[in-house]
Design a protein around this nucleic acid. Sequence first.
RNA 1: GGACGGGUGGGUGAGUGGCUAAAACCAGCAGACUGUAAAUCUGCCGCUCCUUGCGGGCUACGAAGGUUCGAAUCCUUCCCCGUCCA
Length: 378
Amino acid sequence: MNFSFAGLKTEAGGARRGRLMTPHGPIETPVFMPVGTQATVKSLRNEALEELGAQIILGNTYHLYLRPGHELIRKLGGLHQFMSWNRAILTDSGGYQVFSLSELRKITDEGVRFRSHLDGAEHLLTPEKAAEIQLALGSDIAMVLDECIETPAPRGIAESAVKRTTAWAKRARNFFLECAGRNGELSQWQFGIVQGATFADLRRESAQRLIEIDFPGYAVGGLAVGEPHSVTCEMTAEVTALLPKDKPRYLMGVGRPEQIADYVALGIDMMDCVLPTRAARHACIYTSEGKVLIKNARYAQDERPLDPACGCSVCRRYTRAYLRHLFAAGELTAAILATHHNIHFYLDLMGQIREAIEFGNLAKFSSEVRMRYAAGPA
RNA sequence: GGACGGGUGGGUGAGUGGCUAAAACCAGCAGACUGUAAAUCUGCCGCUCCUUGCGGGCUACGAAGGUUCGAAUCCUUCCCCGUCCA
């Protein structure tokens, strides 16, 4: 695997236009990665994802370990073969579940003890175990187990989360290299994750420690979990200023359509977010003019497509009135069509961002998107 | 003709003297969703007034009367509906 800007432009402000080569195809960056926690992007068939041009999707260590089990997936040829997805996959480590399943877990220096949300059984996820699971899954990019905390957080909590995340990163890295060997880097990468809540010095400290460990790529975690967007940007900027320029940076779990270009401008190459898929299932449609809550009565007789400016197969064929009806009737097709459109919107948005970087007018593009979103849909 | 049972807000349906503008669910309306315990969750949902307050007024539990300080709840008559008997 390798990451390069060869023949590609880097914008002065920090935005980068790159290419990440994986065993499952190239990834043009900046990239948006649809989330497919349980080896599927909810309500989308892989055929649709391919049609939409998804270059890489996410899977989740914690979920796939619990069900169907990483050993089973390994036996069946790895995650790519198991789910019949031949493009790239990044697996999250379960670190986010440390945060989102906070009532079901206990953290120690050893690792995280979870009570399964499926059957209540107790499981211990250690940095080594998370790496082992992801090696079995065979994702193109594996994440280290980290301690993700909510923001804002008291400094003491943030400090100890950074300390633990650093120690875990070291262990995860050692274990990973031991198992995969240095040559393992050819087929699977492992990224470290910066923590530090909303404290700039802790963010720098965390990044510095990870750089010393030396990963092929770095993620910024624990953001967009409660703090204002401006703070998310400040923290991201602190980190990207330190990270090696020749390695990919991944801002985890973001963001809203009008925020994405901001992160790119700060030097972020990769992002993922459940927003387009989850919001779609909840009848929230992202369009070039802002969000459309398609269940609203005002769309009952609206014969326009979800987004008149969109060229996706859903917008080419179906009306707002029809989508509204499908949601009102609780039909599964509503989720399928809405998700398809929202993912198209996100991937297309990122495509436009890549283009804007190449033309050197990302800032202009970004402010146009923001203005359209502020104005709202017609 | 007789015997029971029943008529509650847009729907289903609790409530059987004051805490009831009336549970709950559905429908309806609006909103949220950021490394997915999410096809989920939240708010509103009789009308009206304002100094928007766990505020005021009005109307409301088939109809009309009555008992009571107070009635969806008790009594009387009537009108409907269901089941059974002739």
